[in-house]
């Protein structure tokens, strides 16, 4: 007899596959979208440090790269913490779909 769906679940809801949360894209939760303005960026990497997820990408050379919008939930912490250059922010929040 074939097993019912609930009989196939792993014991105690343990997740046996490492790093499987990457399969769960959370970017769809976002209503505000961070925009990176490269000319105002001083490469302080505050945004990378403050991001509660891992949505600020870094190049092989250790430089700031584009946002990973598959996981960015639009919390805006990066934009808040961004010191920018000469009073101009390198990250601004924009409404999604505009």
């Amino acid at each position: 007899m074939s097993k019912k769906y609930w009989e196939t679940l792993p014991q105690g809801s343990v997740v046996l596959e490492a790093g499987s949360s990457a399969k769960f894209k959370t970017g769809g939760w976002r209503s505000m979208r961070p925009k990176w303005i490269e000319e105002n960026c001083i490469q302080c990497m505050f945004c990378w440090m403050y991001c509660p997820d891992m949505s600020v990408k870094v190049t092989a050379e250790g430089k700031r790269a584009e946002f990973d919008y598959d996981y960015c939930k639009g919390c805006g912490i990066c934009a808040l913490e961004c010191p920018g250059k000469k009073g101009k922010k390198a990250i601004v929040m924009e409404e999604e779909g505009k």
């Binding site: 809801s13 046996l16 490492a18």
Partner: peptide, 29 residues
């Protein structure tokens, strides 16, 4: 032991978030 966390060669996660799509089934199990 069954799925011990200290088996570092086989990393795993305990205590995931299980919402409306599967919680009911876990309780049935």
């Amino acid at each position: 032991t069954v799925h011990p966390l200290l088996d570092l060669d086989n990393p795993k996660s305990y205590g995931p978030l299980i919402l409306t799509d599967m919680y009911h089934e876990y309780k049935r199990a």
